[in-house]
Amino acid sequence: MNWRMPSETDRHERTWMAFPCPGPALGSTEDSRELTYRAWADVANHIVDFEPVAMLVDPTKHERARRMLSAAVELYETPIDECWMRDHGPTFVVDDASGTLGAVDWSFNGWGAPGWARWERANKNAAFVAELVGATRISSLLVNEGGGIHVDGEGTVLLTETVQLDPRRNPWADKARVEEELRRTLGITTAVWLPRGLTRDYDDFGTSGHVDIVATITAPGEILLHTQTNPEHPDFEVSRELHAVLSAATDAAGRPFRITALPAPEILRDEEGFVDYSYVNHLVVNGGVIACGFGEDRADARAREILEAAYPGRTALTVDARAIFADGGGIHCITQQQPDVAR
């Protein structure tokens, strides 16, 4: 098989998610737990207006999930210990010659094996989903997460040195070895390495620099870049550094990137410190875009306008993502698209 990861803008058969269960992401108080459940449900209930949604749910949370989710959301019971579906679930690929759907089963160690993370059950979910949809399971020894890569579907991948080369993830890896594995599993021919991610992402509950909160390829040669415009925020300099790196890069076809700034909201801090609120962490769906909202009407509206311009013909809808970001990620992080493959 010659596997290729399609662009997220290609048509989807469905979106996969995992309903929250007790653990670090769920919070320590009843109020915080309720906010997390509601945020996950809101995202699913918006997606299902555009395309089918399939939700993994722990048996202990089935009743709550069914109560909070639209009847159109399909539930699949399986033991859950981690609900960030983008990262522990399969990365779907296709073999264009045969029309076969594949599911890359990365090695997952909870974003570098921090003491708080749980992943014993999560590591089984990619295989579980692959079997459910009849996809060919593609095992990989690379410790990687779906949020650590963005592709254009034509051979280009964006990734971050502090993720795939993290010694807590892949102590023996170098760029050449990572790129060879991505060539085997995703059909990548050109890797664009970013030196780092956003500042908050290096906290204890961060991913150490996932690209899906920083930059995304909206079309071949086109990039949306998270842009912090306030010099008081440390990501002001990070944004400038990443813009310089991407400005000097080319994609698999040798094209320089056209970079569009996607400004951050105005809020700089929460009770934990500088925020990493980012509109880049959106989900493209059939006919739409599910965008993160941060309670700032003007900034949220500006983000929708930029997203609709970047994805012509799609309607952008805002879902309040503050509770998701408080748990360590965004809308893209809790979802995983399954491409529509003609069989």
Rank of each mutant, 00 (worst) to 15 (best):
P79K: 07
P79I: 09
P79N: 07
P79C: 06
I80T: 06
I80Y: 05
D81N: 14
D81E: 12
E82H: 04
E82S: 04
E82K: 04
E82G: 01
E82P: 02
E82M: 01
C83E: 00
C83D: 03
C83Q: 05
W84Y: 11
W84M: 09
W84K: 03
M85P: 05
M85R: 06
R86N: 07
R86M: 07
R86A: 04
R86K: 12
D87H: 05
D87M: 08
H88Y: 12
G89K: 09
T91A: 14
T91H: 11
F92G: 02
F92L: 07
F92D: 06
F92K: 02
V93S: 00
V93T: 09
V93Y: 01
V93N: 05
V94Q: 00
V94C: 00
D95R: 14
D95G: 14
D95C: 15
D95M: 13
D95Y: 13
D96T: 14
D96Y: 08
A97K: 12
A97I: 11
A97T: 13
A97W: 01
S98Q: 10
S98V: 11
S98A: 11
S98I: 11
G99W: 14
G99Q: 14
G99N: 14
T100R: 13
T100W: 00
T100Q: 10
L101E: 06
L101W: 13
L101G: 13
L101I: 14
L101H: 13
L101F: 13
L101A: 13
G102W: 03
G102N: 09
G102T: 09
A103Q: 01
A103S: 02
A103L: 02
A103P: 11
A103G: 10
V104N: 01
V104M: 05
W106Q: 08
W106H: 07
S107D: 12
S107R: 15
S107L: 13
S107Y: 13
F108L: 10
F108K: 06
F108G: 05
F108I: 05
F108E: 03
F108R: 06
N109S: 05
N109D: 03
W111S: 06
W111E: 09
W111L: 04
W111D: 02
W111C: 02
G112S: 07
G112E: 02
G112T: 10
G112Q: 01
P114S: 10
P114D: 04
P114V: 02
P114T: 10
G115A: 15
G115F: 14
G115R: 15
G115D: 14
A117Y: 04
A117P: 05
R118V: 03
R118H: 10
R118D: 00
W119D: 03
W119F: 10
W119V: 06
W119A: 05
W119C: 04
W119K: 06
E120H: 12
E120A: 12
E120M: 08
R121N: 12
R121P: 08
R121F: 05
R121M: 09
R121E: 05
A122T: 09
A122L: 03
A122N: 08
N123W: 09
N123V: 10
K124I: 00
N125M: 14
A126S: 11
A127C: 01
F128E: 00
F128K: 12
F128Y: 12
F128S: 10
